[in-house]
Amino acid sequence: MTPNATGVDAVIDVVTAVLLIAGALMSLGAAIGLLRFPDLMSRMHAATKPQVLGLFLVLAAIGLQMREWWVWPILAVAWIFQLLTVPVSAHMVGRAGYRTKHLHPELLSTDELEAVVLRAAGQRAAEKAQEAESAMPHTGKARNGGNARNGGNGGNARNGGPSA
């Protein structure tokens, strides 16, 4: 930031300061959510969303301060990396959390996945285990119980892989 800025510089500095403090507040919001929410799933919301916006605000502040056009594509790449990775890791953590019964049923108003799980546990266990085995040789055997459903890992790994 410019010391004793005047004119345009001063305006840019004020905007930068606002963006930086808002970005830092987003981190604080994530931490408050982590502390106050009762279960893993709601904490996941708190951990992912403010993170994305916070990085966006702070990167925008960097772009304003550098004042060179070639900075923007770099910052965009950094942000897009996060846009691609954050939902995937949130989904993986959430899926593991649901499968290991980290959910508090008393906090849910409806759970439409549970019925599907119970139905699937009996009739589809065998074929899914086979599918899982052919897709992932060393994890298929470990998960041939009721929770070895055809997850989204196939689609995510394939589509997220090349770009992330």
Partner: peptide
């Protein structure tokens, strides 16, 4: 799934392909 995970109040828990 990606867009849904980033808009208010929703996260993808499981996908049935």
């Amino acid at each position: 799934g990606h867009v849904i995970s980033l808009i208010p109040g929703s996260l993808v828990v499981e996908v049935d392909r």
